[in-house]
Design a protein around this nucleic acid. Structure first.
Lengths: 127, 127
DNA sequence: GAAATAGTACGCCGATCGTCAAACTATACT
DNA sequence: AGTATAGTTTGACGATCGGCGTACTATTTC
């Protein structure tokens, strides 16, 4: 069922497993704020922002179980904060920067800056 | 126990009933985001921001019961988003703009802007 | 002191949350 | 085909959430 259009060399292609994402216009501020109000999810978002690239779930390595990790990534996806796509056995994650910036200008950046500032204040423990 | 410094004429002074507020340094980003992720509380915050003045709880008039209203105001206070003080039988509420701006620069404004934009998009129903 | 006003405290409810372990699915590698 | 890798699903758990009504407290006004 491969319906991919842009082959990218030796890396595995996207597969048929589908993931539901809210359309840009369907993203709601309260859902985004709720998604960001959990420390584990904030960690994911900050990592994604720092790397500014697609990352697999496992590369982020939260101190919770695999199933809890799955849960947090789903909350982030369903709230519209991240985009996920299957690639081989992995699932790539990326921030929906453009969509968020279009809907809520400056919000993501100020949240990320606030998180960084707070981490500094609290002594670098990131929690 | 009136320890008020700026008498403002015929209106009642602050009374002895005490309200716990987190110190500025104790305010946590995740608590603020959680506080703002509820539509009723967002309504309160937006109203406070628009009026840019102290308001009583009852002036804001949420479509929930009195006790639920009390609950929401407490969440906002305990998260550090608003400051509350008793004045006679009323309780005055104000945004902690300075503290929030010092801790999380630009955050409150971008959240308020985002809420306004979303209200526009969604047709002015404020929910 | 009595009535009115403004908000609190205390349970209670059903729903959602964050967490886990166990069993499972999908893909890749050999 | 068989094994390894990566993530999902399900169902459970205790905790928290947003909501309510009722009874209560504090203050002002009469």
């Amino acid at each position: 069922m491969q319906t991919q259009t842009t082959p990218t060399g030796p890396q595995p292609q996207a597969t048929g497993r589908s993931l539901e994402h809210p359309r840009r216009e369907a993203i709601r501020l309260e859902d985004v704020l709720h998604a960001l109000s959990d420390p584990m999810r904030m960690r994911v978002v900050r990592t994604l922002a720092e790397e500014s690239a697609e990352l697999t779930c496992s590369v982020i390595d939260l101190p919770v179980s695999k199933s809890t990790t799955t849960h947090h990534f789903r909350v982030l996806r369903e709230s519209g904060v991240i985009h996920q796509i299957y690639r081989g056995t992995a699932k790539m994650n990326a921030l929906r920067r453009e969509d968020l910036e279009a809907l809520f200008p400056g919000l993501l950046d100020s949240v990320l800056a606030a998180a960084a500032l707070q981490e500094g204040r609290l002594g670098g423990d990131r929690g």
